[in-house]
Design a protein around this nucleic acid. Structure first.
Length: 940
DNA sequence: CTATATACGTAC
DNA sequence: GACGTACGTATATAGG
């Protein structure tokens, strides 16, 4: 290639990309065990760049060294940046190897940041009449955008030009550094001016033109806080400007001519990709190795597996050829255009296509997020990647833009019913429980929709704790495609419109894409269930649970609305009295609900001792602090504690529950299936998993959850399930024996650890043993146990040591979990659920130890979640089989709550107990305790 | 006025 | 900072 008269130089911000890719991608390792996720991201990006955006010249630019002229001007600049994580460090060299493998020049210069080199090259190429594309998403480079210089976002590969920079900073690119100087940048320790954020900064620069003009105009400004800050921090702003302004006259390590795009050596590249294990890139690039590559790699992979016991397969998207193919198939087709279906004939055609395909993705659009009250506004189907349609049903349209012909919801449901109930066609949803309930409300019984797969649950079963399970996130991650966002379709805040008012054309683009993406995700994710050994977990637990939870949510639970109202009244009256007394004790009126104001009263005005400060420097007034003060005989903190208890019960429970109770006097929670890092469910709107029970006042709220006339509530809860799992997985003979014999486990522990006889054990000793047992489950620390028991950490330490000495297997278990988390990044429950533990490699001891405790706790908490889920999947069928009309209503982690006709109650309790105790076979018995009552408190 | 952050407190 | 997992309410603050 010869030097062109008008070169186009593409500059890749290598250093910026490394960090972004490292944090965006799941951990992966090369065949020889080195972490390579950032290298993988970089390789993909570079390959795509070479394919789609080649200029005449190309280079990758890196940072070199941490000392730059900026740290001379301002020592704090980037000074607080921690060392890169351990998993990233080996990847810096590998990324430089990657550029070599692609035969692209890598550029770095000691003492200069990549950004300065990029600025200098961009300037140089402009001077000789050329143009420049900067591949980076770093906002600090946006100051360079202008005639002949644009940027390219490296992951989505979207262009960043003057309009995009203006959208981001609110000013033209030449004024970006002035704005940055004012607003500062906490991530780089650029100080800026306190109190001035992005909005104010751009407004000021637009008004006055430059930073200096803003600073000059400051004394005349009206807003006093802003004026004072600008004057006081003017020099900080000037320094900030020097920090963010890029140097454009750095000596160029290589002349531009040397950056001319070169041919790559396919053999070198293919060899390197093989070494890294990037088979999918190899396939996509079509630089397949002429001979022997597959055998070569397979042999190395096998050697690796034997070293590590064969259990170290990572979540890398390159894990198997089948997965690579699935990714290729799912990512090849275009996202749209999609068809809008307006007639019975057209819908019938899509139903037939789905039946022919044997599977389809389905998605519903509604006018709300509560599936028990939302109406179906439209539905979409996808039958193959890129092939999807949207069926508008309740779009309203406007005078200028009528919605046009639409099928009625009833007509569409009747046309689609044969498809959704066809046992030979797999229906794929993202978060199936929601759509099942929407269809149910539209007249299509959710229990008849089968078979169903759920991409959210397929992903969650293998990646809890690693990333969120929302469709957009999964799509970006696995398909490299960011779907149209809901917010961009409906607007946000005051401008938000209901989906019924979204124009049908736009709705089709959005909704059909959702079904398309869901189908593609299924193609990519479902095969990974097998490779990650999560197929049984998904098939036997997560997948069948959706309709069970849907039924529970639909059923809801009855509440005594009048009683809740009385409680609210009672609490309000007593709070008013207390508030008056509190104000009198304080000597003035203040907002009792404000911790800040309370802290000032107690510690500044009244001068009480024993205050702790929180991280923001404010006085802590949490219950332990107030309790300490109360114990010293102070009256005011004791009264505040009582006030707080009632305020909590009223605002969080009685008032909130009254608001959420339907006209049928029932409340319907929503169970979230893919939120927690351990596999537990969560409950929201309202949260019925944290209804009070421990105090007398709280118990009154639980008594307001009732059985309707003629019915009873039945509670069934696992006794000590997490400790039983611990005894099982850690194989502790003494604990196992205690459970076998049905002994009081905490008393037995006390007896073993403290060497006191079981007979006549005193309550305090048992309480200590109980605290240790719970502490073990939580990944005990001497500090935590000491705080829990109100004893010095040193004394707690001696208890823990005695415990470990008596049960050495527990220490082994804990170390095994730490080690597994360190080597794999996740731990497993006994049922094969993967719980990722981010942070286990952290340098900071505090954060690392936190991750270690998660690793210890997750198999126990998660194992218990697996067991109760297994019981929940079996119970509805078992109840029906036995001829009961009882319904399961709630799950609270180790408890299930049922509602049954009075006559059935005893038998239902017995059945629930049988099913729950048989839900898993451990080396210790599972024990379930049941209770029956008119209300939840009585039943529990 | 809305959106976000922090503090606090329920549950298992 | 300091034993695990959640969710919701309240203030306070930032920005429009």
């Amino acid at each position: 290639m010869t030097q062109s008269d008008a070169p186009h130089l593409v500059l890749v911000d290598g250093s910026g990309f490394i960090f972004r890719a490292f944090h965006a991608l799941p951990p992966m390792t090369s065949p020889n065990g080195v972490p390579v996720n950032a290298v993988y991201g970089f390789t993909n990006m570079l390959a795509r760049l070479l394919r789609e955006h080649v200029g005449t010249h190309l280079a990758v630019v890196f940072d070199a060294g941490r000392q730059t002229f900026r740290s001379d001007i301002y020592p704090q600049y980037k000074a607080h940046r921690p060392e890169p994580p351990e998993d990233l460090r080996p990847q810096f060299a590998l990324i430089r190897d990657a550029t070599k493998a692609f035969n692209v020049p890598g550029i770095e210069l000691q003492g200069w940041e990549a950004d300065d080199l990029i600025a200098s090259y961009a300037t140089a190429v402009r001077q000789i009449g050329g143009t420049c594309t900067i591949v980076s998403s770093d906002k600090d480079l946006m100051q360079l955008v202008g005639p002949g210089v644009c940027m390219l976002e490296p992951i989505k590969q979207t262009a960043i030009g003057v309009p995009e920079v203006e959208a981001k900073f609110g000013v033209t690119p030449d004024k970006v550094i002035d704005v940055q100087a004012l607003m500062g940048d906490p991530t780089d320790n650029v100080p800026g001016v306190p109190g001035i954020g992005p909005k104010t900064a751009s407004a000021l620069v637009n008004e006055f033109g430059t930073l200096e003009a803003v600073l000059a105009a400051a004394p005349e400004m009206k807003k006093s806080k802003r004026r004072d800050m600008l004057i006081e921090h003017a020099d900080a702003a000037r320094i900030s400007r020097k920090l963010v302004e890029l140097a454009c006259d750095v000596p160029l390590p290589l002349p531009i001519d040397d950056l001319a795009v070169r041919e790559m050596d396919k053999v070198v590249l293919a060899d390197w990709l093989e070494d890294m294990g990037f088979r999918s890139v190899l396939t996509r690039l079509g630089v397949g190795h002429p001979s022997g590559a597959h055998a070569h790699r397979a042999a190395r992979a096998a050697a690796h597996a034997s070293v590590n016991g064969g259990g170290t397969e990572s979540a890398a998207p390159t894990a198997t050829p089948a997965q690579s193919e699935a990714v290729t198939a799912a990512t090849a087709a275009a996202y749209g255009p999609y068809e809008t279906v307006r007639t019975a004939e057209a819908l019938q055609k899509w139903v037939s296509m789905a039946q022919e395909a044997g599977l389809c993705a389905v998605d519903t659009e509604t006018d709300g997020l509560d599936p028990l009250h939302a109406n179906m506004v439209g539905l979409s189907l996808a039958t193959a990647p890129g092939k999807a349609c949207y069926v508008p049903l309740r779009h309203e349209g406007t005078l200028e833009e009528p919605a046009g012909e639409q099928l009625t919801a009833d007509a569409a449901i009747n046309l689609i019913r044969p498809l959704l109930t066809d046992a030979s066609v797999l229906k794929i949803f993202q978060n199936a429980k929601f759509d099942l309930l929407v269809f149910d409300r539209a007249g299509l019984d959710f229990a008849s929709i089968a078979p169903v797969d759920d991409t959210m649950l397929i992903s969650y079963a293998q990646s809890a704790g690693l990333h969120g399970q929302g469709m957009d996130e999964l799509s970006t991650l696995h398909l490299g495609h960011t779907p149209i966002s809901y917010d961009s379709v409906t607007g946000t805040g005051r401008n938000r419109i209901p989906f019924t008012q979204v124009p049908v054309g736009r709705a089709t683009e959005y909704a059909a894409e959702d079904a398309d993406v869901t189908l593609r995700l299924w193609h990519v994710l479902h095969p990974t269930l097998r490779t990650n050994q999560a197929l049984a977990l998904y098939e036997q637990i997560e997948r069948p649970l959706s309709p069970v939870l849907a039924a529970m949510e639909k059923a809801g639970i009855a509440v005594d609305r009048a009683e809740l109202g009385r409680l609210s009244e009672d609490f309000a009256t007593r709070m008013a009295v207390m508030e008056k007394e509190i104000h009198e004790a304080a000597g003035r009126e203040f907002n009792v609900a404000s911790p800040r104001q309370l802290g000032e009263i107690l510690f500044d005005e009244m001068g009480l001792k024993g205050g702790k400060r929180g991280k923001a420097g404010a006085w802590s007034t949490d219950s332990s602090v107030l309790q300490d003060l109360a114990d010293q005989g102070h009256d005011l903190p004791a009264r505040v504690l009582s006030w707080r208890q009632l305020a909590k019960l009223k605002s969080t429970y009685t008032d909130a529950l009254l608001r959420q109770t339907t006209t049928e006097d029932r409340v319907h929670t929503s169970f979230q299936m893919a939120i927690t890092t351990t596999g537990r469910l969560s409950s929201n709107e309202p949260n019925l998993q944290n209804i009070p029970i421990r105090t007398e006042e709280g118990g009154r709220i639980r008594r307001a959850f009732i059985a309707p006339k003629g019915y009873k509530l039945i509670s069934a809860d696992y006794s000590q399930i997490e400790l039983r799992l611990l005894a099982d997985v850690a194989n502790i003979p003494a604990l196992r024996e205690a459970f076998e014999l049905g002994q009081d486990i905490h008393a037995r522990t006390a007896s073993e650890v403290f060497g006191v006889p079981l007979e006549g054990m005193d309550a305090l000793t048992r309480r200590r043993a109980k605290a240790i047992n719970f502490g073990i489950i939580y990944g005990i620390s001497a500090f935590g146990l000491g705080r829990q028991l109100g004893i010095p950490a040193g004394e707690a330490r001696s208890y823990i040591d005695a415990y470990f000495a008596r049960y050495p297997g527990i220490r082994d278990y804990m170390e095994r979990m730490r080690e597994q988390a360190r080597t794999l990044g996740y731990v497993l429950t006994p049922f094969g659920r993967r719980c990722y533990v981010p942070g286990i490699q952290e340098k900071s001891a505090v954060r690392r130890q936190y991750a270690e405790r998660q690793a210890i706790n997750a198999p126990l908490q998660g194992g218990a979640a697996d067991i109760i889920k297994r019981a929940m999947v079996r119970l509805p069928h078992a109840l029906k089989e036995a001829g009961f009309s009882a319904r399961m209503l709630l799950q609270v982690h180790d408890e299930l709550l049922f509602e049954a006709p009075e006559a059935e109650a005893e038998a239902v309790a017995a059945l629930a107990r049988t099913i729950m105790e048989a839900a898993a076979t451990l080396s210790v018995p599972l024990v379930v305790e049941t209770g029956i009552g008119h209300n939840w408190a009585e039943a529990h």
